[in-house]
């Protein structure tokens, strides 16, 4: 059985908001180390990987590996019934087809109980190889959100170039184009500043609609890391106290 007590429902609400438009159904794989999710988006262009460590919960118990197949739309609706600062307890019995959620209000005696149907999801787990990326960029997550939102007004794609100059985001739309250069900030480390590590010049093109979607995770962390190598998927990673959310995005074939 699974019993997990989360100090604040907000973390789950934000996680669901970060993935619900990419993925329809997914398995939350629970084991004694915590809860993991890996799912491809419907068009198999992006992969999202979530980890919630057992140590990030106020109380966590999972006797044996348990896949919880969830419709993310339904999960989002049930989580909307929780206040951000409610304590959230999720429970599932072995072989059960129901996930129960309890929200305990922080400052009152209100206890709300919900149940959600679980489903069997037959999803392949992909093997993500360890990669030594040619470039690592760390920047404020709000800045990344602004860049991808701004450029998505102009075109469908963004070219990301990492060079000695810094990291440049370039969009070439039919009617307008734009580019944004971020240089490493020498006097400011993350979360406020930008750090760039580069072994090799990188130049890759990605679909902006996915990046706009990934940027929703800025509610989970003030910092985002971009890891890039030529001709491999971009890794967009947000770390937070209880775990992380990582997105992998396949590149577009460049011009």
């Amino acid at each position: 059985m699974l019993e997990a007590r989360l100090a604040e429902a907000a973390i789950l609400k934000r996680l669901l908001d970060s993935i619900k438009e990419l993925v329809t159904d997914a398995n939350f794989e629970c084991n004694e180390e915590g809860i993991n999710l890996q799912a491809m988006d419907n068009s198999h262009v992006a992969l999202v990987s979530v980890k919630l460590s057992a140590s990030g919960f106020k109380k966590y118990r999972c006797d044996r590996p348990l896949p919880l197949g969830v419709n993310l739309g339904s999960f989002t609706k049930v989580l909307k019934c929780a206040k951000d600062d409610d304590v959230c307890i999720i429970k599932a019995a072995d072989d059960a087809d129901i996930l129960s959620l309890t929200y305990e209000a922080r400052n009152s005696d209100r206890i709300a109980e919900y149940e959600m149907k679980l489903m069997d999801i037959d999803a392949d787990t992909l093997n993500i190889p360890d990669t030594d990326y040619d470039a690592r960029v760390s920047m404020p997550s709000a800045e990344f959100t602004r860049i991808v939102r701004d450029l998505s007004q102009l075109g469908e794609s963004v070219r990301i170039e990492v060079s000695k100059e810094g990291v440049r985001f370039i969009s070439d739309g039919e009617a307008a184009n734009g580019n944004i250069l971020l240089r490493q900030t020498d006097d400011d480390a993350p979360p406020e500043g930008v750090t760039i590590e580069m072994n090799q010049h990188v130049n890759l093109t990605f679909s902006l609609k996915y990046l706009v979607n990934f940027a929703k995770s800025s509610t989970l962390s003030n910092v985002v890391q971009l890891m890039l190598s030529n001709d491999v998927p971009l890794l967009v990673s947000y770390d937070f106290n209880q775990g992380h959310i990582r997105y992998y995005l396949a590149p577009k074939i460049g011009d």
Partner: peptide, 14 residues
């Protein structure tokens, strides 16, 4: 989408 590669081409099933 034109020119868009699939993530499965990079991450294979184990």
């Amino acid at each position: 989408e034109i020119g868009q590669r699939s993530i499965e081409g990079f991450f294979k099933n184990p």
